[in-house]
């Protein structure tokens, strides 16, 4: 009962803030609402018993990646005033197209779930208090290769960024 209340509150907050993200006038406000979203998603993870994932979500996503976004937005604002798009009709046409695509996806998901309900049920047992160890085991045994590939990806991205941004000193 308490879980249900918590879940629906969090879900409502997440959806509400998501709407604010796309309707906010200032880019910085958008980012702040998105950060709030991530914090609530971390709350969802806690409800599911995945505390490790929740904290990692805060540390990496809300505390790292979004800070980077914020830096970029602030520095870009510094250099040039934002250019307003002239063609309103083009924007709303694109918007309509994308929302139709999303709706189609949602319909597909709903149909798939109705067709095979079993595969979408979350595991019965929650992770328990030792989820750090469990995640660690899984990462380094079953999912070792994806883990290493992901770290290589990040390394390549970092090196690329440094090479691009490097000035002749």
């Amino acid at each position: 009962m308490g879980q249900a209340i918590a879940f629906y509150t969090l879900a409502a907050l997440i959806l509400g803030f998501s709407v604010l993200v796309i309707t906010a006038k200032s880019a910085v406000h958008s980012i702040l609402f998105l950060v709030a979203d991530f914090l609530f998603v971390a709350g969802l993870y806690v409800l599911l018993g995945a505390q490790f994932l929740a904290v990692i979500q805060v540390v990496v996503y809300a505390g790292g990646i979004m800070v980077l976004y914020l830096f970029v937005v602030m520095l870009v604002n510094l250099k040039r005033p934002p250019e307003a798009h002239q063609d309103r009709r083009r924007r709303s046409r694109l918007g309509l197209l994308f929302s139709l695509v999303v709706c189609a996806e949602l319909v597909l998901i709903g149909a798939y779930k109705l067709a095979s309900p079993a595969s979408l049920v979350p595991p019965a047992a929650p992770m328990g208090p030792h989820n750090v160890e469990q995640v660690g085991w899984l990462l380094y045994t079953d999912y070792l290769i994806p883990f290493e590939v992901a770290s290589m990806l990040l390394l390549v991205a970092m090196i690329g960024a440094i090479v691009l941004a490097r000035r002749e000193l």
Binding site: V28, L32, V35, L39, Q51, F52, V55, I56, V58, V59, A62, G63, G64, V67, L70, F71, M74, P129, H130, N131, V132
Partner: peptide, 23 residues
């Protein structure tokens, strides 16, 4: 059970206040 990580998470949120304060 993730006490230390909680501290790290909380510290990384604190950075926002500084950026936003300046901006």
């Amino acid at each position: 059970n993730i006490g230390v990580l909680y501290v790290v998470a909380v510290a990384s949120i604190g950075v926002y206040g500084i950026i936003l304060g300046g901006w």
